[in-house]
Design a binder for these strands. Sequence first.
DNA 1: TAAGAATGTTAAGGTAGCTTAACATAAAGA
DNA 2: TCTTTATGTTAAGCTACCTTAACATTCTTA
Lengths: 189, 189
Amino acid sequence: MDIWKRFGEKEISHSMAHYLQAVAALKAEKGHARVGDIADHLGVSKSGVTSMLRSLERHGLVRHERYGCVELTSVGAGLATRTESSRRVLTMFLTDILGVPDAIASEDACMIEHLVSSEVSVELLRLTTFLRSQHPVARQFRDAYRTSPRACAAHAAGASGSPDTCGVCADTCLHDSLICDLGVAAART
Amino acid sequence: MDIWKRFGEKEISHSMAHYLQAVAALKAEKGHARVGDIADHLGVSKSGVTSMLRSLERHGLVRHERYGCVELTSVGAGLATRTESSRRVLTMFLTDILGVPDAIASEDACMIEHLVSSEVSVELLRLTTFLRSQHPVARQFRDAYRTSPRACAAHAAGASGSPDTCGVCADTCLHDSLICDLGVAAART
DNA sequence: TAAGAATGTTAAGGTAGCTTAACATAAAGA
DNA sequence: TCTTTATGTTAAGCTACCTTAACATTCTTA
């Protein structure tokens, strides 16, 4: 049970992913990426950028010489592209298939874009493409799903929760536990 | 464009989420959670547990007195349950709907369980429940989806990639960019 | 071409989350 | 009770990522 510890061992951190994407975006937008541009783009200080660039350079993801422009290595560029693609797929899945509001979809996608394996991203792309398509089954799905119950079917039925009928929730209703109001903000103050 | 910075402002961090789940699991399993148990369960040092408990106490998520047992507050317990539920829903979606291998599904779910909003978790539960159900449309979906093409349909067609036909990929094929071999490990050594 | 503005780096410091080593407390047994 | 063992805490130090303040370099322009 040690998977959780590998969080810090991912190929790139959340910050690194966004620095790489910033460099790629600036390069595409204005032809070059400089420390100040990156700082503005990400809303961090220039000194923070300098030190992150040192770290990215150590990881072989960018090239940067003192007072010069920043370039992505091929590995860095690949990572930037993959993260960006992952974010796009996630966002589209969350909005178009799950029907979550744009703001929430964007935020969730931003948080997890760099943590989702390429296997999952690819399958998510496949599912999203399929369910958005003109395939007759996809059309039927969209019609039927719109009216599908919001909560776990077995428990939503109200009938003293016969758990066996719900393979997802098993013995406890996941729906309720997912939406409980935690009031963490209040606890902090 | 500052969503990305709120990564560190989530109600709980990855580590905190797993500490809370560990306490809940130990409490359920042996009736109490002590520092050593938590350390063993998570594979960290006891001193690390002590200091994390101080932090969790500051956040109002646990109660802990010197040399005593650890208790979850109601907020902490709610957070533990929600994270656990989120993980279960994610894992089931990834394995049963997307068809990703168990090991990858577990790892991805572990990484993002605490980062996914409850809105998304709830909708994911609804979708998973529906697609696993005996609803005729769900059955048809399972039959049809099994043979659905693995790549973005428009690009997979091979035909000089007419992008307009693929609403997901737009101008660049996301499928290819998601699976590129990055060789980051190699770059590190 | 020298002054001033724009840009970039270094230095020092803060939080989070981990480590090991040394120390403190509690529990058990002779 | 007194000692041994189990358990928990403190101290010091590490990396990552951010900050501000001070300093260095480069660009621009008069």
